[in-house]
């Protein structure tokens, strides 16, 4: 850690040192507040999760038949039951962490306590928000672009079976390429602007969507296929009315995979060459021994990932409403 700090550019080093000094000043007050803050945060989060689950289920119930309401109520309780144990374990771990740091008097630059992380993050909130915003926009752009490209190529390949036969095995093979490792290459080719970072995130999102979609397009029910051919549905009609909708569950699992990769890949892209974003901020903070801010950055990355995946899951539920009616009144 010390080594990396000295190797960094002067600008970073100066910034980091300044941060360390500010840190030291806040130290005393922060550790006092820490315990209470950690407690509060944990119980708050649990409450929010429970609320979310409840309202989500309520929405599903309103959609379905009246009889679904009772079932949804049952499911809400089941979900709450399922959500409590991991949340309790998480809270216990945070408390243990807090206690261990205090008990052994671990230095904050080595391992800050959760409370310390929270208070430092609060102090740096404006910078954190700015960098998080930059990362989020890079992530969303890359996710949207990469997924759209994956979707379009999958559709095209599916409609051109000969091309598909040539390209599909290569696509599957290419999943073994560690795309993140291509980052430095992209910087060499496209410089330090937005383009290489965007390309990296797009590439990461492109493959899971494309491969999942190609599999899904092939998975249409042959009985439905035969029916549509018998009544005279043409190629385009069968694609639009049968293959595309029946591939939707596959598309969404690809999108969820892409969503969970996308934030991490954006951070790595910023790591490789950028002057803003959480990746840059975390690199800077670690070089300046602002370990608590590195933790804060990690926490925000996790939160952004979860948010994005949850958004995709929400879109999936909305798009695949018909599935929730399975086994209804029959």
């Amino acid at each position: 850690m010390a080594g990396s700090g000295h190797r960094g550019p002067d600008r970073n080093e100066a910034d980091g040192r300044e941060a360390v000094r500010r840190d030291a000043a806040a130290d005393g007050a922060a550790s006092e507040r820490a315990g209470a803050a950690a407690d509060g945060a944990a119980s708050e989060r649990a409450g929010a999760a429970a609320d979310g689950a409840a309202s989500e289920r309520a929405g599903a119930a309103a959609n379905g038949a009246k009889s679904a309401r009772a079932r949804a109520g049952g499911r809400t309780r089941a979900r709450l039951k399922a959500a409590w144990p991991p949340l309790a374990v998480l809270a216990a771990l945070l408390l243990l962490w807090e206690a261990a740091v205090r008990l052994w008097g671990v230095e904050a630059w080595l391992m800050p306590s959760p409370g310390r992380i929270l208070s430092d993050a609060w102090e740096a909130r404006e910078r954190l928000a700015g960098h998080a915003g930059a990362t989020l926009s890079l992530t969303l752009l890359g996710f949207a672009g990469g997924s759209a490209a994956g979707f379009a190529l999958a559709a095209l390949l599916h409609l051109l079976p000969l091309v598909r036969a040539g390209v599909y095995p290569l696509l599957v093979l290419s999943q073994n390429v560690p795309i993140i490792a291509l980052g430095p290459l992209l910087v060499i080719w496209f410089g330090f602007g937005l383009l290489p970072k965007l390309l990296l995130v797009m590439l990461v999102c492109f493959f899971p969507v494309c491969v999942a979609m190609l599999g899904g397009l092939r998975g249409a029910d042959p009985a439905l296929e035969r029916y549509l051919r018998m009544i005279g549905a043409g190629r385009w009609r069968r694609f639009a009315s049968l293959e595309l909708p029946s591939s939707a569950p596959h598309l969404f699992s690809g999108l969820k995979l892409a969503a969970s990769y996308s934030v991490t890949s954006a951070v790595v892209a910023e790591w490789i060459g950028s002057d803003r974003g959480l990746g840059y901020f975390m690199l800077l903070s670690s070089k300046g021994f602002k370990t608590s801010l590195v933790f804060a950055g990690v926490a925000i990355v996790v939160a952004l990932s979860l948010l994005l995946v949850a958004a995709v899951a929400g879109a999936e539920r909305l798009a695949l409403r018909w599935r929730s009616e399975r086994g209804g009144a029959a």
Binding site: A223, L224, R226, Y227, M230, I231, S241, L242, P245, S246, A248, L320, W322, R323
Partner: peptide, 13 residues
Amino acid sequence: AAYMPQQAALLPW
């Protein structure tokens, strides 16, 4: 010709 198969062949979505 109009067609009615053995399985109802209704699109589930």
